[in-house]
Write a protein that binds this DNA or RNA. Sequence first.
DNA 1: CGAAATCTTGACCGATCTCAACTTACGTGG
DNA 2: CCACGTAAGTTGAGATCGGTCAAGATTTCG
Lengths: 222, 222
Amino acid sequence: MGLRSKACIMRVPIFNHLDDEKLEEIMSTIKTAHFEKGEIVYRAGQQSDSLYIVSKGKIRIYRLSESGREQLLRILKPGDFTGELALFRHSVHESFAEAMEETDVCIITRNDLQNFLLKYPTIALQILAEFSNRLDESERQAARVATERVETRIALYLAECMDNSGGSMEITLPMSRKDLASYLGTTPETVSRKLAELEAQGYIQQISGRKIRILDLDGLLE
Amino acid sequence: MGLRSKACIMRVPIFNHLDDEKLEEIMSTIKTAHFEKGEIVYRAGQQSDSLYIVSKGKIRIYRLSESGREQLLRILKPGDFTGELALFRHSVHESFAEAMEETDVCIITRNDLQNFLLKYPTIALQILAEFSNRLDESERQAARVATERVETRIALYLAECMDNSGGSMEITLPMSRKDLASYLGTTPETVSRKLAELEAQGYIQQISGRKIRILDLDGLLE
DNA sequence: CGAAATCTTGACCGATCTCAACTTACGTGG
DNA sequence: CCACGTAAGTTGAGATCGGTCAAGATTTCG
């Protein structure tokens, strides 16, 4: 078990309130795995019994809808985890997970995790809190796609990026136009056009590919 | 504490694996409340520290998007619960809950619930399973709204109604056109039109307002 | 039985998707 | 370090799905 794994686990909100002894206990059950860019960590329909925690790299989580179109759900950074859905229900994945670059993950099996949960119930509360956040985000996103125009969705997304980038007026999009389009429920062409419009209206300034400066946040949000 | 409350609690998946003694313990902390049709159980932005379990009636859970449009998230039947989001995170509701008819709910406070979770960790696993289901549904719905045409969404919805109504070819929609439209991210007019089209194509037959007979499930799903 | 809400149908318009051409950025190997 | 090939992004034109507004039909419920 490398030091990186431990550093990884300690950074996970679910575990970082535990004392060293319990951490060691968890560490001892963890496996690690490495994925190259583009490799699939798991795919929909596949059996699963593990929780994956990203220790290095990025993972794209997406779904294929009934008609085969892709919907990007979220992007995992180090410290984020996935696989939960399969852990507490059918044990079949509903989504796909794909490494976006060289990525290391820590893996905890369902059995080990459930044992920890029963032994240290505070972990369960942490996971519940995390699930609540996910559910909130998912419902918010669903409501936006269902009720807002593309331009508004993009504006709201940019605003959220700003919140997360600590006050700076300049944000760096964490993904390509194609992924952004998939996340926002539109097409890359429309994303391009709408960003160009927002720029023409003076709300933003496109610096380079993924760098955008917010010039008028209030105007952006109408 | 009325018998109905106990019957209610026992029916909730989260609790129904518990033995009688623990059930009594939970029962002793529960309050009940009654709501008339149209009354608001809670609203977005409101402080919250309780889990609500429906014992009689129906509750509409919906969000208002940034632009003020309504998105129906789900409808609670007896045995279903809500309020979780506020329980494990900010403690502020993100959604609205409105009684659709005369409705009774059982209420457990955050403190009591968390104590139970720590004392009987198996409850936490049940809630985690329930959350997983919600998250899955929410993500699936988000993906559909983002990637499928209205007609497809309606068809998929009808198909799901069939699954839930046990093999019968005749389904009864659990909500009005307006709510269905809100749930599917469209308008009542479009729902009417698409249902009429599906009928013209011979896939379904509209019996009366909410009763629909499925004539060709495979055709419906293309 | 009648008022009010719900639902349906029609006409029109606009946002966004599709397809296609072109430009720019990026990574690889020489 | 540059050149090239490929992927990513942009822009345009046209088509269409679905939303809006409005009128009429139907159902619901007191």
